[in-house]
């Protein structure tokens, strides 16, 4: 009973946005990793994972994201996450994922954060 997820990559200035539509479970591993590798191959330094608020995320999906965090640290990339429901924001904090990826309500908020830091620098 495989579950489909739609993953797409788009550029927003200096930021790469990976849009995730569908369940983030073990079935999403290949699609998420391909999108991340594609963004990295294009030189992405700031990557936003944009979730759809009501989709299902389980611990296997979180493990996939931790794998991305591992790769991103090696490449000195900044990860941000947007669109998460309050419930999944809580889960991400619970497991410690927010130590490695900033949470923002929307993509625009994440872009403002990145651009604000760039201006400050």
């Amino acid at each position: 009973m495989s579950e489909e997820i739609q993953v797409s990559v788009r550029g927003e200035g200096d930021v790469t946005v990976i849009d995730l539509i569908g369940d983030v479970t073990t079935f999403a591993e290949e699609a998420i990793n391909q999108a991340y590798q594609s963004a990295s191959a294009d030189g992405a330094k700031n990557i936003v994972f944009n979730f759809r608020e009501n989709d299902y995320i389980n611990s296997a999906g979180i493990a996939i994201l931790i794998g991305v965090v591992t790769e991103a640290r090696k490449r000195d990339q900044k990860l941000l996450m947007t669109g998460l429901s309050a419930h999944f924001q809580k889960i991400f904090r619970m497991v410690g994922l927010t130590q490695y990826a900033d949470l923002h309500p929307t993509v625009n908020d994440a872009l403002a954060s990145v651009n604000g830091e760039a201006t400050a620098n």
Binding site: S59, A60, A63, I64, I66, G67, V69, T70, R73, V95, G96, L97, Q99, Y100
Partner: peptide, 12 residues
């Protein structure tokens, strides 16, 4: 999670 990110612990 620190161990997972550093590759010292398996993911999950």
């Amino acid at each position: 999670i620190d161990g997972m990110v550093e590759g010292k612990r398996r993911l999950g």
